[in-house]
Simulated assay, not measured.
Amino acid sequence: MFTLAHMSDIHLGPLPKVKGRQLLSKRLLGYVNWHRGRKFMHRRDILDLLTNDLKARSPDHIAVTGDLTNLGLPQEFPLTAEWLRNLGSPEAVTVIPGNHDAYVRVDPEKATAHWQPYMEGNEPGQALYEQIPGEFPFVRRFGDIALIGLSSAIPTAPFIAAGRLGTEQRRALGEILDRLGRDGLFRVVLIHHPPLPGQAGWRRGLRDAAEVRDILRIMARNSSCTDTTTNRASSNSKQSAVRRSSSAPRRHLKPSMAVSPPPATTNMPSSRPETAGGWR
């Protein structure tokens, strides 16, 4: 039995000291929002309780699907990398970025490169799909389970938190799902923005969601399995879920942190793709 724990929208606090010139962009609105209310929702003490509870369950693997930072500041990324190291090793934790991690354009070497060991295919995954270094998608294989890491994180205008995979990632996703399905693997797609309809409005949605749904739909039709699930984070929330082949217990630490509950059961292994993500 393989147990996959899922977290999203960490928004690690407190916010580090911000230089004035760093606020000459969309970050100014985010900075104001943080101090007006978000800092009271994304409390570090609650996050620590949540992660300690999750680690106590000893899952086989942990997926963190984006928005580890708040304003995408260069000084936030080393702090989130330290948090990740406390959560687990790169072999035990997989990470993809969210829209807050691409708040504005930043040199990747000063940003998500700090997480790179957590965003690379492992050796069995590379044998199935050879990742272009530093790019997406990537594949991690654990026995009959395969995690497919995507990035929908793109810089956007103020008041917009939308995402996009783009043509190359979508093409690669279709090829990967087809290959892994033919190998009989249970496929878990990690993406920050929800691809299913009705889960996010235009300002926060996945711009190429229809194209992504078509890919998933084709793969599902070609599969003999019947279970497909999507888990999304609600607004202003951190997310944690534990997925396993038996019931998946979860705990709401505080009402404001609660999210839509995941399906109670997931049959592993199987060949139909499942999606896991979050957005804010």
Rank of each mutant, 00 (worst) to 15 (best):
G121Q: 07
H192W: 09
E120Y: 00
L68T: 01
Q116H: 07
Q169D: 10
T275N: 07
L71H: 13
H192V: 04
S89F: 02
A233Q: 05
G198C: 06
Q199E: 10
G66N: 08
L50M: 14
L71M: 11
S271L: 06
G181P: 06
H6S: 09
H114G: 05
Q199V: 14
T51R: 10
G278L: 05
E120V: 12
P261H: 03
R105C: 11
W34H: 11
S223Y: 00
I218N: 08
S237M: 04
I145L: 14
R105D: 12
A127M: 05
A220T: 08
D45L: 07
L190W: 09
M268P: 06
G125L: 02
L216Q: 04
K19N: 10
F40V: 07
G143P: 04
A127S: 13
R27N: 08
F142A: 00
R213A: 04
P74D: 01
G201V: 14
A162S: 13
E123L: 14
G174S: 07
Q116E: 14
A276P: 04
L196V: 15
L71C: 11
D214C: 14
W34P: 06
L24E: 13
A161E: 11
F186N: 02
D107V: 00
V64Y: 12
I10R: 01
F186S: 02
D178E: 15
R21M: 05
G125R: 00
A146C: 06
F77K: 04
P269K: 13
I132K: 14
L12K: 09
S151G: 01
F77Q: 03
S152M: 03
H61V: 00
G205C: 08
W34D: 00
R207E: 10
N70G: 09
G20R: 15
S234E: 03
G184M: 03
M268N: 08
R44P: 02
S234D: 11
V189L: 15
H252A: 11
V139F: 13
W115K: 01
C225N: 08
P137F: 06
